[in-house]
Amino acid sequence: MSKPLRVAAVVVTYNRLALLRQCLQALTNQTVTLAAIWVIDNASTDGTGEAVRAMPLSHLVYRNTGRNLGGAGGFAYGTREAAAAGYDALWLMDDDTIPENGALEMLLRADENLQGNYGWLSSRALAPDGSDQPMNRQRVTPYRDIGSYEGAEIPAVMASFVSLFLPTASVRKYGLPIAEFFIWSDDWEYTRRISRKMSCYVAPASRVIHAMQNPGTVNIATDVPARWERYHYFYRNDVVLYRREGLRGWLWLLAKDMWHTLQVLRDSRGHRWMRIRTIWKGFAAGVRFAPEIKYLR
C-alpha cells in the first residue's frame, strides 16, 4: 500500500477576511486531513493577520509578504515557500475558493487512478448558484474550453489557480509561477508550461465554489469600469503566454485583441480610447516583456 501524500493547501489572500474565513473553514472540513494550511497574505489592511494568528489551528502557517505582490506574486511566494518545506503536493487556491468537503479526497483519488503520472490536477469550479464559473473553465487546447465535465479524469492543458493540485516534483522540475505578471494569466502560463511536458487533467468529482465578486470572462469591453486600469497586465501577460505557441499563438493574440477593440467601440459606457490604448499598449509591452522563470534552490 502506497504511503499517503502529505498535502499542504496554499491560500493567497488580500483584504477579504470574510471570504478567507469561509475558505479556511472548508479546508478544515475536508474528509482527508491536510498536513498544513499556508495563508499567504499580500499585506492586507483589514485585520487578516491578527485574525489568522488567533485561529486555533495547529497546522496553519501564516506568511505576510510585506506588500501587495498581486495574485501572481502571492502564488509564486507561497508555492516557493511551501514546496521548500517538503510536502508531497500543494493545493493552490484564492481566498474566495470554498472547496466541498470531499474535494481533496477526489483529487487524491485521481492521483491514485493516474498512479502519479501527471503534471497537475484541477477541480471543477462552480458559482454559488451551482452553475460552472466561466472564468475557471479549463482548456483542452490553448484556444478551446473544456466541453463537458463527464468522465473521471479529463485531459487539459490550462487551468486556473482556483483549486490546482500540484505535485511538488512538478514545481522542482518546471519552476515557479511568474511573480512579475502581478495579476492575470499567471495560472494559464504556469499550467501550460507544465502541460507542454506532461499530461495534466481535470478531476470533475473534485468540486469547489468560486465566490468571485466579478464573475465572467476577462475582457475590458465587458468588465466594470473600476477594473479597467488593471487590464494592462492582462493584455501584456497574454503575449508571454501565447507567443510560445508559435504563429498560431500570435494570430490568436491579434484576433482576440482586435475583437476586444471592436467590442469597446460598440460599448456605450464611454472612455473608449482609454480602453483601446490599454489593450494595445499592453500588447506592445508584452512583446518586450521577458520575465525570468525562477526555480527552487
Rank of each mutant, 00 (worst) to 15 (best):
W250V: 10
R80N: 12
K173T: 04
E105N: 08
L114G: 05
E180P: 10
T141P: 03
N64A: 01
T261Q: 08
A18L: 13
E153G: 10
S268I: 13
N101R: 09
A255L: 12
L241V: 15
Y87K: 01
H59A: 11
Q138V: 06
Y190W: 08
H260E: 11
N117M: 09
G286F: 02
G66T: 04
M258L: 14
S160I: 00
G216W: 01
A152V: 10
L262R: 15
F234W: 04
E292V: 07
R6S: 14
S199A: 15
M158T: 09
A255R: 13
K197T: 07
T97C: 15
E112T: 13
R63V: 09
P177C: 03
L253S: 04
E153Y: 01
D132Y: 11
V239E: 01
L5D: 11
G270I: 05
A26T: 03
Y231T: 09
L254Y: 11
N64Q: 10
A285K: 10
M93I: 06
W273H: 01
A26M: 00
R172L: 12
N219V: 07
I293L: 12
Y201F: 14
G102S: 13
N29I: 08
G47V: 05
G270K: 06
L241P: 03
I194H: 03
G73I: 06
R16I: 02
T97Y: 13
I178K: 12
F289Q: 02
V208M: 11
N117Y: 00
Y118D: 14
H232W: 08
P56H: 02
S206M: 03
Y118F: 02
Y118T: 08
L254Q: 09
I279E: 05
A83M: 07
V52T: 01
V264Y: 02
V218C: 04
S58M: 13
A285C: 12
G116F: 00
F182V: 15
N15E: 14
A211E: 04
A51L: 08
P99E: 08
N29R: 12
K294S: 11
A18S: 13
T261P: 04
R288E: 07
W188H: 14
R80M: 10
K256I: 06
I279A: 03
G175V: 01
A18M: 10
V7E: 02
F161R: 03
V202I: 15
N29D: 15
S2D: 14
L5E: 10
R192M: 14
L24C: 07
F182I: 15
A35N: 14
W259K: 14
A290M: 09
L57M: 15
M274A: 11
Y295W: 08
G74N: 04
R266E: 04
L17S: 14
Y242W: 04
G78T: 06
V7Y: 00
E189N: 07
N64D: 12
M158K: 12
N113I: 11
H210F: 09
G249W: 09
L92S: 08
S160T: 07
L90P: 05
R80H: 14
S170Y: 00
L265K: 05
S123C: 13
Y295M: 15
W188D: 11
G74R: 09
L20G: 00
A84V: 08
